[in-house]
C-alpha cells in the first residue's frame, strides 16, 4: 500500500482502452416529474483509470453517478457492469459532496462500514485505526464525526470508503466546499485509491482539478452526453463547440 501523502505514480498501463469496458451505460434515461434529467446516455468506461465528469450545474453529473452506483433506478436504459462470470458484483463505494457522518466517533464511522462489509468484529478496530492513521485522522479517532471540520469530514468519508477496499469509487464533487489544503488531501487520496487499482469516477467543476487527475473526461450538458474523450485530447482540442466553450469558461446550456 502506498502512503497517502506520498502517493505512488499511477501505473503505466494503458489507461483508456475502449476495447475492454468495465461499465456500460446503454440508453440511460431518467425522468422526474415530466422533466428529462438524463437523456439516453450511452457511455463505456474502461477497466482502469480516473474518469472526470464535467459539466455545469444541473447537467446530471450527480444523477449519472447515482444511477451507475445503483442508488436510484433509471426510468429506462441499462447499467451494465462487466465482471467475470461467477464473480460477485464489484465492490463499490461513493463519497458525497456533503459527507454523511454517522452520529458516532470517527472511529465508529469506519467500524460501521466494516461491519456493513461483514468484516469480523475482532478485526474491525485494528483495520479502522490503520486507515485513520493513513488518512492523518488518528488524533481524531475518538472525536464525534459530526463536530469535525468540513475538510476532516471529507477525509473521514474517504477513509470510510478506503476500508471498504472498493473496486469502483464514485466521488460526487468531493472538493467543492473545501479549502485548498483539504482539496489537496482529497486529490492525494484519489491518487492513492487509483494506485490500489480502484476505478474512479468523479465529478467536478474545477477544470484544473480535472487536468490534474483525469485520464478521460465525460462532458455532460443539460442531461446529454456531449463528449467522452481522453483527458489530454479534451484539454488540447475538444471536438465539440460545447466542450470548447466549457473550457474557455463560458456559460453553456
Amino acid at each position: 500500500m502506498t502512503d497517502l501523502y506520498h502517493p505512488g505514480v499511477p501505473s503505466g498501463q494503458p489507461i483508456w482502452s475502449p476495447s475492454a469496458p468495465l461499465l456500460k451505460l446503454k440508453g440511460l434515461t431518467y425522468v422526474h416529474q415530466d422533466t428529462v434529467l438524463l437523456h439516453e446516455i450511452d457511455l463505456q468506461l474502461a477497466r482502469h483509470g480516473i474518469t472526470l465528469l464535467l459539466g455545469p450545474n444541473g447537467a446530471g453529473k450527480s444523477l449519472l453517478m447515482r444511477l451507475a452506483h445503483g442508488l436510484i433506478a433509471p426510468t429506462s436504459g441499462d447499467v451494465i457492469w462487466h465482471t467475470q462470470p461467477d464473480m460477485p458484483p464489484l465492490l463499490q463505494a461513493m463519497v458525497f459532496q456533503h459527507p454523511v457522518m454517522l452520529r458516532r466517533t470517527a472511529l465508529a464511522n469506519l467500524t460501521y462500514a466494516l461491519a456493513a462489509r461483514r468484516v469480523p468484529w475482532r478485526r474491525r478496530r485494528a483495520l479502522a485505526m490503520e486507515t485513520l492513521e493513513r488518512f492523518g485522522l488518528i488524533s481524531l479517532a475518538q472525536r464525534q464525526a459530526r463536530v469535525l471540520s468540513g475538510g476532516e469530514q471529507q477525509r473521514l468519508a474517504l477513509a470510510r470508503a478506503w476500508v471498504l477496499k472498493p473496486e469502483v469509487l464514485f466521488l460526487d464533487e468531493p472538493t467543492s466546499a473545501l479549502d485548498p489544503a483539504s482539496m489537496r488531501a482529497v486529490e492525494e487520496a484519489v491518487h492513492a485509491f487509483h494506485a490500489e487499482g480502484t476505478r474512479i469516477v468523479m465529478s467536478s467543476h474545477d477544470l484544473n482539478q480535472a487536468r490534474r487527475l483525469a485520464d478521460d473526461v465525460v462532458l455532460l450538458c443539460g442531461g446529454r452526453l456531449v463528449e467522452h474523450t481522453p483527458a489530454e485530447r479534451f484539454f488540447q482540442g475538444p471536438r465539440t463547440p460545447e466542450a470548447r466553450a466549457f473550457i474557455r469558461g463560458e456559460l453553456i446550456w
Binding site: L71, A93, L102, A116
Partner: peptide, 28 residues
Amino acid sequence: ALWEEYREQLHSLRIGRVRAMPGLLWDA
C-alpha cells in the same frame, strides 16, 4: 429524520432497512 439523512450513505454501503434499524436506533 435520521433515515432521510443517512439513506444514500447506507444504500451506498449496501445496508438494507432491516440491517439499518439497530444503527439508526443507536444513533438516535
